[in-house]
Design a protein around this nucleic acid. Structure first.
Length: 476
DNA sequence: TTTTGAGTTGTTCGA
DNA sequence: GTCGAACAACTCAAA
């Protein structure tokens, strides 16, 4: 787009970028048009595909959109909110408002790319342009390539190439506030639909202390900045507040990724560097999904599509329902079910357990996470699962199999996290908390936790399962 | 074109 | 109890 204002009216379409400040697409819209309408669509195509009618993510989005609308109104603008199919709503609205162009931010998921192409071609028929900008990633598409001009498929060289290019200049915020006077109101009074009107019920989101919107993000960020220098040491312990808890805000764009990277770069501490690394992992998987969209349903390394998983449905139910008999696994699975969050260390441990101990297809686990994680992001979730299953780009070697007991001893030594989610193990001595089936019968009675009655016996023997997994992976 | 060094997060075994 | 090697080669990315 030219820097000079050239359009009369434009429409900005919010998607996973639910903020006004430092929003790339909104900035470009404001800069190019005399008046900018804003819209958000509760997209039936997306909502109908969700697993249920009580979904923390919908409530999070709803709260964030409500706040977004308030802040746009405070500047003299407004937010039009629709409930319908975005691929119909957007072209219809753009025509009705007589805008010259629709602006938005890029989304790299295959389904989103397809939707945007459809919207763009509908708009084209009435002579309306469609523009999308990079906003959710630090670098995207072909910005960071190897010297041979190919996409990176190994993290470390990708990270090094990113770090060479990352600086305060490329992370400068887009100053949307300079152009707030160009925000326009459509004149039509269409009230924001309530959660129930879009077909969803309230969840326990509030009780969990998860606050949506830019204000929720700022609060989480302030809290994390007090802890960021200890991130490297604290991040692996699920019982400790060691991680940022910003993933859900990154998912829905209630905070700017450029701002986060800027803060991390300027901090110059080991903790901040280590966290920046995680932000680059997020970019890395966006980039993998964009260049290799086959990963959504196949192994990145095609030979691993030949893995013959056992896919025992009873074992899968036990994993989902937190009845594996391995306390750390079960506590982690209760955490995701009850809160929609799971600590990153635990995501790796339960993924390793599902694929390498239960010999269940990583796609089953990926789908369960997709249905339950508040911060679910296709690229990161798929990348994480393929990493754990050793089927991905830059995957862990297949013989690296997590031992659910030793991981528990290392990262939850006193069983603090375990006891938080498994009250039935409250009185089990620390010595047995990681493998309660090794408790002598008398101890079981004393702890009020009889194995097989109060807590399940392990559904698989890790040592046996490990050898089976090694044999299976070796066969391909 | 060939060579070289390296690759998120681990576990087990045996000396 | 501690420590190093094996696990398995393979492929990526840069020189």
């Amino acid at each position: 787009m030219s820097a000079a204002q050239s359009l009369d009216k434009a429409l900005f379409w919010f998607r996973r970028d639910l903020r006004v400040a430092d929003n790339a697409g909104l900035y470009h819209a404001l800069k190019s048009a005399a008046g900018v309408y804003c819209v958000f669509v509760f997209d039936r195509d997306i909502l109908n595909a969700l697993p249920g009618k009580s979904d923390r993510r919908v409530e999070f989005i709803h709260g964030s959109v409500l706040e977004l609308q308030k802040s746009l109104r405070a500047t003299g603008g407004d937010l039009i909110v629709h409930h319908g199919r975005a691929r119909e709503v957007i072209p219809n609205l753009a025509t009705a408002l007589r805008v010259a162009a629709v602006f938005s931010n890029e989304d790299y998921e295959p389904a989103a790319i397809e939707r945007d192409r459809a919207v763009e071609s509908s708009l084209k028929k009435t002579g309306i342009a469609f523009h999308a900008f990079k906003d959710q990633a630090l670098f995207a598409k072909d910005e960071v390539l190897t010297q041979a001009g190919t996409p990176f498929t190994v993290f470390t060289p990708y990270k090094n190439a990113c770090l060479k290019r990352l600086d305060a200049f490329c992370l400068q915020p887009y100053p949307t506030e300079k152009y707030f006077s160009r925000l326009a109101r459509s004149g039509k009074k269409a009230p924001m639909p309530a959660l129930a009107e879009i077909g969803f019920k309230a969840t326990n989101l509030k009780a969990l202390g998860i606050k949506p919107g830019v204000n929720g993000a700022l609060e989480a960020l302030d809290d994390f900045l007090e802890r960021i220098d200890r991130y490297r040491e604290a991040r692996d312990f699920p019982a400790v507040r060691g991680v940022s808890y910003l993933s859900v805000h990154n998912r829905f764009g209630t905070v700017s990724i450029r701002r986060l990277a800027r803060l991390a770069l300027e901090r110059r501490s080991a903790g901040a560097d280590s966290w920046l690394n995680e932000l680059i992992w997020r970019d890395f998987y966006f980039q993998i999904l964009y260049h290799f969209p086959h990963v959504t349903d196949s192994a990145f390394k095609s030979k691993y599509d030949k893995l013959f998983f056992k896919n025992n449905r009873l074992l899968f139910s036990a994993w989902r329902e937190a009845c594996t008999g391995y306390p750390l696994i079960d506590a982690a699975m209760r955490q995701i079910t009850q809160s929609g969050f799971m600590h990153n260390r635990l995501r790796m441990i339960v993924a390793s357990f599902l694929t390498k101990d239960l010999l269940i297809d990583w796609r089953w686990g990926e789908k369960y996470f997709a249905d339950h994680l508040n911060d679910f992001d296709l690229a990161a979730n798929n990348g994480g699962w393929q990493w754990a299953a050793s089927t991905g780009c830059d995957a862990q070697p297949y013989f690296r199999i997590f031992n659910p007991v030793s991981q528990s001893q290392r990262f939850d030594a006193q069983g603090k996290f375990i006891r938080r989610y498994l009250p039935e193990l409250a009185k089990v001595p620390d010595k047995f908390i990681h493998a309660p089936w090794t408790m002598p019968p008398l101890e079981q009675q004393l702890a009020g936790c009889v194995i097989g009655r109060d807590y399940p016996a392990p559904i698989v023997d890790h040592d046996v399962a490990r050898h089976e997994a090694l044999a299976l992976y070796k066969s391909v």
